[in-house]
Simulated scan of single mutants.
Amino acid sequence: MSKLWGMREVADFLGVPVNTLYQWRTRNYGPPGKRIGKYVRFIPDEVRAWVDAQPSGVA
């Protein structure tokens, strides 16, 4: 198993601000994250799978 990612690593990977990830989480959108104590952590393979599942094209 690879190291879990924090909000900063996911934001950097996706090219979005950290605040966008927090907004997505309040809307039940975005890559699946798990709360570990007071931190949100992401499994890198799940983040990549979420990206792959997104429709192509411009919204």
Rank of each mutant, 00 (worst) to 15 (best):
M1N: 06
W5C: 07
M7C: 03
E9H: 01
E9Y: 00
A11V: 01
A11P: 02
A11F: 02
F13L: 13
F13I: 01
L14D: 11
L14I: 03
G15T: 02
G15L: 00
V16F: 01
P17D: 15
P17M: 07
P17H: 15
N19T: 03
T20V: 02
Y22K: 04
W24T: 01
R25A: 14
R25V: 11
R25L: 09
R27T: 01
R27W: 12
N28C: 11
N28V: 03
G30S: 10
P31S: 07
P32Y: 08
P32C: 08
K34M: 06
K34H: 14
I36V: 13
I36W: 13
G37R: 09
K38T: 12
K38F: 08
V40E: 02
R41G: 09
I43W: 03
I43C: 09
I43N: 10
P44M: 03
P44C: 13
D45G: 14
E46N: 08
E46W: 03
V47R: 12
R48K: 12
A49G: 12
A49Q: 13
V51C: 07
D52R: 11
D52F: 10
A53P: 01
A53T: 05
A53Q: 12
A53C: 09
Q54L: 13
Q54I: 00
Q54S: 08
P55H: 13
P55L: 12
P55A: 15
G57R: 15
V58I: 10
V58A: 07
A59L: 07
A59F: 01
